[in-house]
Amino acid sequence: MDTGTPRNDTTADTTALRARWSATLIAAGASGDPAPYADRLLAAWAEPQRRYHTTAHLADVLARIDVLAPYAADPAAVELAAWFHDAVYRPDRSENEERSAAMAERALPELGVDPDRTAEVARLVRLTVTHDPAPGDTDGEVLCDADLAVLAGPPEAYAAYAAAVRAEYGFVPDDAFRAGRAAVLRQLLALPRLFRTPYGTAHWEAPARANLAAELAGLT
């Protein structure tokens, strides 16, 4: 059973990721050469300012999508959205998701992906701003659950995730970070549901809430 456990390092097997990218493009009906965009995306995911939003995070989200794929209406669109959802990431900026969606809107037509699927991918990327898919948005539910499943890892894995997030915000003073992080944790705990898919609800909801509550207690 996938418990949402993140990798302990910040990198993933790029050979496997390149093969996955090519296979996903084929499933999405693309006709262009996948290699140049694989290079660009993997370089983006490996930028030095990243500590959590790395190729390891990308690989973990893709692995969770494999678990949740039966719930998706368009698994290929969900996988492409995973590739792009943090392709642009600057921890000191708020427009990362919008810029990532815009990157998908430029790249996918060049790769021969049809306009409807391109629009769906961009919509899904933008949805990761809130992780709040509308009822019946099964593609959105799968992507958001896969992205948030890190919250449900064992305590030691969750601690590594929290430390990586803190490292990404190393430019923020401790007091300000603790206050901001605590506010985020309270918002998450106040949600009626963190996960929307049946699998996420059954397997990830309870451990995620326990981890969030424990981190909040440690901060406050």
Rank of each mutant, 00 (worst) to 15 (best):
P6W: 01
R7M: 14
D9G: 15
T11G: 13
T11P: 12
T11F: 14
T11C: 13
D13K: 01
T14Y: 03
T15Y: 10
L17G: 00
W21T: 05
A23K: 07
A23T: 14
T24G: 08
I26V: 15
A30K: 04
G32Y: 10
P36M: 09
P36W: 09
D39A: 04
D39Q: 09
R40C: 03
R40M: 08
L42G: 07
W45N: 01
E47P: 01
R51H: 15
H53E: 11
H57R: 00
H57Y: 03
H57K: 01
L58E: 00
D60N: 12
A73R: 15
A73K: 13
D74N: 07
P75R: 06
A76Y: 02
A82V: 07
V88H: 14
Y89K: 03
E95I: 08
E97V: 00
L108Y: 01
P109D: 00
L111A: 02
L111C: 03
G112F: 15
P115W: 07
P115H: 09
D116K: 11
D116C: 07
A119S: 11
A122G: 04
R123C: 11
R123P: 14
R123M: 11
R126L: 15
G136V: 04
G140Q: 02
L143T: 02
D145K: 07
V150S: 09
L151W: 07
A157K: 01
A159N: 02
A164N: 08
Y169I: 06
V172D: 05
P173G: 02
D175F: 03
F177G: 04
V184Q: 10
V184L: 12
Q187V: 10
L188C: 10
L188T: 07
P192C: 04
P192S: 06
F195M: 09
R196T: 10
R196N: 08
R196E: 09
G200W: 05
H203P: 07
A208W: 04
R209M: 03
R209D: 07
N211I: 04
A213Q: 15
A213E: 15
A213C: 11
A214Y: 10
A217Y: 13
